[in-house]
Nucleic acid binder design. Structure first.
Ligand SMILES: [Zn+2]
Ligand SMILES: [Zn+2]
Ligand SMILES: [Zn+2]
Ligand SMILES: [Zn+2]
Lengths: 121, 121
DNA sequence: ATGAAAATGACAACCATTTTCATTTCTGTT
DNA sequence: AACAGAAATGAAAATGGTTGTCATTTTCAT
């Protein structure tokens, strides 16, 4: 696996925390950076492998990448401006374990996302 | 919007509750049904609009459709055999509201999925 | 300077999904 | 039955994000 081009990460930061590969590429070109779309994809793959970013999907299926530390947590995202708060999910962790036990499941994992409108919007 | 071809829904049921459009199409052909891929896609869109099915994404981005009632609930899915239990998420609803207030967000929505290994696997 | 290894990017290939459009099937009316 | 209009169908083409290929360029240690 190739190493991530640092300008990709810095552009993702500047983009407000999340963006698609194509958006990052357009942004970099608009700012005069010479970089190929392929390299942007490769860098994002690498950041993904290093748990520096997270990936989720738009409704149309396009992958969007998000800055995200590697410890387990959840997100509260503003649907309007994209502002994101990282959340500790203590209550959910307990709920997940309880529900799993109740139904005889083991090796439980979970995903949870909150979205709404932030105070500034 | 065209109406759903009932054989698509019945195939989705037979497939164990969730499958991609392409998988449903292959299944139907293997069983001798004559149906076009386009019609499968259209039927799934219609079922989606009627809140009969749910859609989520595989890691590779392919959309998979899942039988799912229209009342708000969550899912506990077996990663091995696909067995799915529908869960009431009272605890999550409260957690979501509490976290939202704490951070000044309003109009909160959420998504949550549990996955693990069921007792039979 | 030299060569090996890594990174890069133009281009092609891939594949799920959508669009197009001509044909077929359904439905009600005379 | 005959007809017309509407709805459904599906083959083929178009779309578009993503990945693969491979020749070239850059990096880096010796
Ligand atoms: Zn995060
Ligand atoms: Zn958690
Ligand atoms: Zn199972
Ligand atoms: Zn809920």
């Amino acid at each position: 696996m190739s190493r991530s081009n640092p300008r990709v990460l810095s552009t993702l930061e500047r983009a407000g925390g999340f963006a698609s590969a194509q958006e990052i590429h357009k942004l970099m070109q608009r700012e005069g950076e010479k970089i190929g779309l392929t390299t942007v994809y490769r860098s994002l793959q690498s950041l993904l492998g290093d748990k520096i970013v997270d990936v989720l999907r738009r409704d149309d299926g396009e992958a969007i990448y998000r800055l995200c530390g590697d410890s387990h947590h959840h997100h509260l995202v503003c649907k309007s401006c994209g502002k994101t708060v990282e959340i500790e999910g203590g209550a959910i962790e307990k709920w997940a374990k309880a529900v799993a036990l109740e139904h005889g499941f083991r090796d439980i994992g979970h995903s949870a996302e909150l979205f709404g409108t932030c105070a500034d919007c």
